[in-house]
Design a binder for these strands. Structure first.
Length: 967
RNA sequence: GCGGGGGUGCCCGAGCCAGGUCAAAGGGGUCGGGCUCAGGACCCGAUGGCGUAGGCCUGCGUGGGUUCAAAUCCCACCCCCCGCACCA
């Protein structure tokens, strides 16, 4: 724990200095290339949590890396106040919701004396905003905080107004009606966060098919309009009340359940004519609008008169409920004789075929699930699910549908057209036809009814009229979006398909709502722009917001001309300046700033935002900006999980970033986020992971200390050259990893693999060379900086580095000493082989190891063997190297085998280096002896006729695989 | 249902797009050893099976196919995860 305490105090020290020296404030600098990265801003309805920690770390590591690569880096952050959840939360506080207040106090550490103020949603937003910002700073994010803003700032409002005017001018904003979950008491739309148990109201689109008795219409609501061909009767609930309503526009008179009536008023305009008992409807005869057949209205208790219209069409061949109710009815003796005869004459009519099942599927399902009455609700639900999904998935309309069923006037062609068609196709066709001919109309209902608002009222469906939409369905726009997508880098690449699919199926999206914090629609301020619609191009706003404030421009004067000039370069700076009452140069400077930073280089966010925010981000950039300002890439990172489960804000089972940073320190938290998994993958946050991160840091920290303490003015020959090459090679590879957003891999290289190499070096030499230590510790500390900047600054200072390591250059790749790398590679292969032999021979103690290796003269033959596998060519090269012909060809064959099994890295070494194996192994013999625990190592040339041939191993030698004899 | 992704050794995961160099990277766990007060801290080694000389056999969801050669390509099937909108 002492080490963690040290890390924490080091962090405080450097945090203060960074702030003091404004290290991460970014201004345009034409002498350097620029790099602009943003992460999705947070919605401050709770403190920042581990998920934010991960997304922002990804952005920060890249920002820091590119800064060290010499780029002028801008990494800003803002806060997204837009939305309704905070409203719902403030309301819960206001209503004295105990459990919720407990979450605030106990989990989120809100001081109890502030709870009262949390009744104000704006206060709540500000509170969590400020707290999160504090934590982000402690976390070591290299953010330019001068550019921070919230989405309720007046400047931002004007910016969004400009964007929406642009979209409207391009014809991408349309108006229409739209169903939403609605609380009758609040008179407001409700989302999942407004309901009891956070249950999402699931809105289903039903077709109400109008059966008629000449005067009244009986709208039967169904999700399966294609089954209208199989209707044998209608159902009403005889124990409930029904009403006749007159629809305002058409004047049609509908018979609907009394309870349904109350719910339907939110989507239809009508007046109630009269109400009566459902039993009065029983026995009436109505006409099927599609087949023209006359069918009776019959009683069934399973009918829920509050659901949709409360009138149901009966398709006993394909709906288990209908089948069960019909069977029940046939057994009843209390019906009037005449009706009973009608009932008994009803036979299910099969209109859908399912391969392999001859009988109508509903009847099959009754037997399969053992259903004997319409009261078997649970079994009936299961059977219904089975029938619906089976028929939709595998079913098709019967081949001779048009011969089996009559057709009403106007529907003569429909049955023929869909005969034999799949249920999916038939459903859409029938639906379309019914709606077109005015025999059906859409009604909505909550499928998972009942859903209750937090206030206790049952949620209904409200048809919002005059709703504003962004029309992502516009084919011109889709094309542009696809073009933009194809020009972008996507991490992970697998997500590209998902983006493409999303672009394809996006239609229109409601972009404004009736309440919540945010920006009002410019042309209709009674609507607030919805949160995913006001956050699509705000990255551009970061580039100029600080300049606008600095110049003290009046937000109200930030006209469309202003934004046109600044963001698109349209119009003239002098006009804009005059209207603003400022110097032309001020306006020009703002324009230049945008022009310098844009386009965005990387957009980082959680992968959950791919089908919404990130796709909207693509669409809107494609619409608003010219191609030269289109974003260059998207990084979608995975989740941080908590013991296998997902976190849930409302239940308070989340890990706050603050808690991680305060418990473990910022550097370990950052490193854990980096090594938990590669960017696209999920990982679990555990104490073990945190401890691993700490041990990585400790290992590096103590090794650097040890190197510096133990080093002497000595030279260790090949070991020195090996370490320098190895370390620089690893760091260079880590740099390539970071270029490709392989953050985990890069972190493991600099924290673990470099440390391993250093440890290996320490076991090779008596004392580390001072020159080597200076070279590698300087580079090593630099390479740590993107991941664990605080301890890196501390070490940098100890090494005597100037300024900040955060501003230093990433180590340049340097000449690699392939001979040294190959020598050690050879030695470690020998070590492996010796161990393998000892294991196979069960030798516990090794007295002596004799090694037969090749001198440098075989190098050219090795090169030949690397590029081809012709025994003749290799053999020839070996002969030229002085190897007797009789041995050369056998050796060539073995070389092919050995070389084939090498990995790319070893091959690279062989191509670039030529070593005398004998000399190299002699030099490293004490290292080998140490590693294998041998008393003595003898190295001979395999070509030395004088050397003893122990165990006949002299002839076993192959280049890179020396012959080995052990005792 | 529609759309997207995926099934690899005890577990997590790389590799598959550009077939051989893959018994298959890297973690974790487990076992053994060391560091010798102790260890959940750290280090070393082992971890499919067999093997007294560095080797052999089996193997990457299931079943087929293409090929001299398949974890990698093709077909079918089974299973899992994610998204589906007014919710940030």
């Amino acid at each position: 724990m002492e080490f963690v305490d040290m890390l924490k105090s080091v962090a405080r020290k450097w945090l203060d200095r960074w702030e003091r020296d404004r290290v991460f404030e970014a201004d345009p600098d034409s002498s350097r290339p620029k790099f602009f990265i943003t992460a999705a801003f947070m919605y401050p309805n709770s403190p920042a949590h581990m998920g934010h920690g991960r997304t922002y770390l990804v952005a920060d590591v890249l920002a820091r890396f590119w800064r060290m690569r010499g780029y002028d880096v801008l990494f800003p952050m803002g806060f997204h106040y837009t939305g309704t959840p905070i409203l719902a939360m403030a309301e819960r506080v206001a209503s004295g919701d105990r459990s919720f207040i407990e979450v605030l106090v106990k989990r989120f550490d809100v001081p109890p004396n502030l709870i009262e103020k949390m009744k104000d949603p704006l206060f709540m937003a500000r509170y969590f905003h400020e707290e999160s910002k504090r934590v982000f700073k402690e976390y070591g994010l290299s953010i330019d905080w001068r550019r921070e803003f919230t989405t309720i700032d007046p400047e931002f409002r004007k910016f969004i107004h400009w964007q929406f005017k642009k979209l409207k001018d391009m014809g991408f904003i349309v108006q229409g009606s739209h169903p939403v979950g609605w609380c009758p008491k609040h008179q407001m739309p409700v989302g999942a966060h407004d309901t009891q148990g956070d249950k999402e109201p699931d809105i289903g689109e039903f077709v109400a098919i109008e059966f008629s008795d000449g005067e009244l219409r009986y709208p039967t609501a169904t999700l399966r309009p294609e089954t209208v061909f199989g209707v044998t009767n209608l159902w009403v609930n005889p124990r409930e009340r029904y009403c006749v309503i007159e629809l305002e526009n058409s004047g049609k008179k509908w018979v609907v359940g009394e309870k349904a009536c109350e719910r339907l008023q939110y989507q239809l305009r009508f007046k109630v004519v009269e109400c009566f008992e459902g039993s009065e409807l029983v026995g009436r005869v109505v006409r099927n609008p599609v087949t023209g057949e006359k069918v009776p209205v019959l009683p069934a208790e399973f009918v829920d008169t509050s659901f949709a219209t409360g009138v149901v069409m009966s398709v006993p061949a394909h709906a288990p409920y209908d089948a069960a109710a019909l069977l029940d009815l046939k057994k009843r003796s209390d019906l009037p004789q005449q009706l009973l005869e009608v009932v008994r004459s009803i036979e299910p009519r099969k209109i859908i075929d399912v391969p392999g099942i001859e009988e109508p599927l509903a009847l099959f399902a009754l037997r399969k699930y053992g259903i004997s009455s319409q009261e078997d609700f649970e079994k009936l639900e299961e059977a219904t699910k089975f029938v619906y999904s089976t028929e939709l998935g595998r079913g098709s309309m019967i081949k001779d549908l048009h011969e089996k069923v009559p057709a009403a006037e106007g529907y003569e062609h429909l049955a023929k057209e869909i005969s034999g068609a799949s249920v999916q196709v038939a459903r859409d066709r029938v639906r379309e036809e019914l709606l077109n001919r005015g025999d059906g109309r859409i009604v909505y209902e909550i499928i998972n009814k009942p859903v209750y608002c937090r206030c206790g009222s049952e949620v209904v469906v409200k048809l919002l009229e005059n709703q504003w939409f962004i029309n992502y369905g516009d084919p011109r726009w889709k094309e542009l979006a696809k073009k933009l997508l194809s020009s972008m880098k996507i991490v992970p690449e697998e997500a590209r398909a998902q983006f493409l699919a999303t672009i394809d199926w996006l239609r229109r999206r409601a972009c404004a709502r009736t309440r919540g914090l945010g920006v009002p629609l410019p042309w209709d301020p009674s609507w607030i722009i919805e949160s995913l619609s006001d956050s699509t191009i705000y990255m551009a706003f970061y580039t100029v917001v600080n300049r606008i404030r600095e110049a003290k421009l009046d937000p109200e004067k930030l006209s469309e001309e202003f934004w046109d000039y600044v963001l698109l370069g349209k119009g003239s700076s002098s006009d804009v300046a005059r209207k603003l009452g400022v110097d032309e140069s001020t306006v020009e400077r703002i324009r230049r700033e945008f022009d310098y930073w844009y386009p965005l280089d990387w957009r980082v966010s959680g992968k959950d935002l791919i089908p919404n925010h990130l796709t909207f981000f693509i669409f809107n950039h494609a619409a608003i900006f010219p191609e030269s300002k289109w974003p260059r890439g998207i990084i979608a990172n995975g989740w941080v999980l908590l013991k296998g489960g997902k976190m849930s804000k409302s239940r308070g089972n989340i890990v706050l970033l603050k808690d991680l940073v305060h418990t473990w320190g910022p550097d370990p938290t950052r490193l854990a986020m980096a090594i938990g998994a590669e960017v696209p993958q999920d990982f679990e946050i555990t104490d073990d992971l945190m401890k691993t991160a700490i041990s990585y840091i400790r290992r590096v920290y103590t090794l650097i200390k040890e190197l510096r303490e133990k080093c002497r003015n000595v030279s260790n020959g090949v070991a020195d050259r090996w370490l320098v090459s190895k370390v620089f090679k690893l760091i260079d590879e880590a740099g390539k990893d970071l270029e490709n957003v392989r953050i985990r891999s890069a972190a493991i290289k600099v924290f673990s693999q470099v440390a391993q190499a250093v440890e290996e070096y320490l076991s090779m030499v008596e004392a580390p060379s001072r020159e080597v230590v200076e070279k590698i510790s300087d580079a090593w500390v630099r390479s740590l900086a993107p991941f664990t900047p605080f301890i890196a600054e501390e070490l940098w200072e100890q090494l005597g580095g100037e300024s900040y390591v955060s501003l230093a250059r990433w180590p340049e790749a340097r000449e690699i000493d392939y001979e040294a790398l190959l020598s050690v590679e050879l030695a470690s292969r020998v070590i492996e082989d010796v161990k393998s032999i000892a294991r196979a021979t069960k030798k516990e103690r090794i007295r002596m190891v004799a090694i037969y290796a090749y001198p440098a003269s075989v190098c050219s033959a090795v090169r030949v063997a690397l590029s081809c596998s012709s025994v003749r060519d290799i053999g020839k090269a070996l002969t030229e190297a002085g190897i007797p012909k009789d041995r050369a060809f056998k050796l060539a064959q073995r070389m092919i085998r050995v070389l084939r099994e090498l990995d790319d890295e070893a091959k690279e070494l062989l191509r670039n280096a030529c070593i005398d194996e004998v000399e190299a192994l002699k030099e490293l013999s004490s290292y080998i002896a140490k590693k294998v625990g041998a008393d003595r190592i003898e190295v001979y040339s395999a070509l030395d006729a004088e050397a003893p041939d122990l165990g006949g191993k002299k002839g076993a030698a192959v280049p890179l695989k020396p012959g080995i004899y052990i005792e």
